[in-house]
């Protein structure tokens, strides 16, 4: 159930240019599924900032964020011991298939974090997982250590080397696998066009409340208007219309 938590910062670390890893202390595992997100109250800012869940351990919630503007810049200056008022878990998350299968996780840039938790969960459930992550350049690479430690099959694509994740997927001949994706809109669109008919995409929207009350984040889908914060942020490929 969604609640407000006061979570102390355990550590904060710059892991790539402009990218931070944030560990928050929780009492027991944070009750979220892969693909759900939290909404952080940033001191001095009115609206909360939605951030996906990178991973959950027995006593910590791990987030990864890019300094994108004023709010995330303030966040990056916060110190261990400071407390973040965290609303969550929010949204519906990814849905893994019941029977074990070979699954593709496709992430671009700062869209990669939720796929770490998802890949771990998929492996736990006995699926075979291939991870394809795209970054601007090798210096921007995220999560290489985590992927190595998981023992999962993974491949990176770099814009600076002239290949994006969708091209990588095609080169590896993986375009028939059910995919789970998060990243920039153009990447998601291209992936839905080139990839399997069975796919799920996690979307972003500017949000007012984050919990369904304001209609600030609604998009038009084949199932009518849906709130990115409540029915989303993960949508199955077949309902997406890509209008906004």
């Amino acid at each position: 159930m969604t609640s407000l938590f006061s979570l102390p910062i355990l550590s904060q670390q710059r892991i790539a240019p402009g990218i931070y890893s944030l560990e928050l202390s929780t009492e027991g595992p944070f009750p979220a599924r892969p693909g759900q997100f939290v909404d952080l109250k940033i001191p001095g800012k009115m609206l909360r900032r939605p951030i996906s869940i990178t991973d959950i351990t027995e006593d910590r919630l791990i987030l990864t964020y890019r300094v994108a503007g004023e709010g995330t810049a303030i966040l990056s200056g916060m110190k261990p011991g400071e407390v973040l008022e965290t609303l969550g878990p929010l949204g519906q998350g990814f849905v893994l298939p019941e029977e074990s299968s070979h699954l593709l996780m496709v992430g671009g840039g700062i869209g990669t974090p939720p796929l770490i938790y998802l890949a771990k969960e998929a492996l736990r459930q006995g699926h075979q997982v291939t991870v394809l992550f795209g970054f601007r350049s090798p210096a921007d690479t995220l999560f290489q250590e985590e992927l190595k430690a998981m023992g999962v099959d993974y491949h990176f694509a770099y814009d600076s080397e002239g290949e994006n994740v969708v091209q990588l997927m095609q080169r590896l001949g993986l375009d028939d696998l059910p995919f789970f994706a998060c990243g920039p809109m153009p990447m998601l669109k291209a992936l839905c066009k080139a990839g399997s008919s069975d796919g799920q995409c996690s979307l972003e929207a500017r949000m007012g409340c984050g919990f369904g009350a304001c209609m600030g984040c609604s998009i038009k889908t084949r199932n009518g208007m849906q709130r990115v914060c409540k029915e989303g942020p993960v949508f199955s490929k077949e309902v997406l219309l890509w209008e906004t």
Partner: peptide
């Protein structure tokens, strides 16, 4: 259906 996104912006005093 309402307006397209973005529908929300922020300011120091609210939204």
């Amino acid at each position: 259906e309402g307006n397209p996104l973005p529908r929300i912006a922020e300011y120091e005093g609210g939204m």
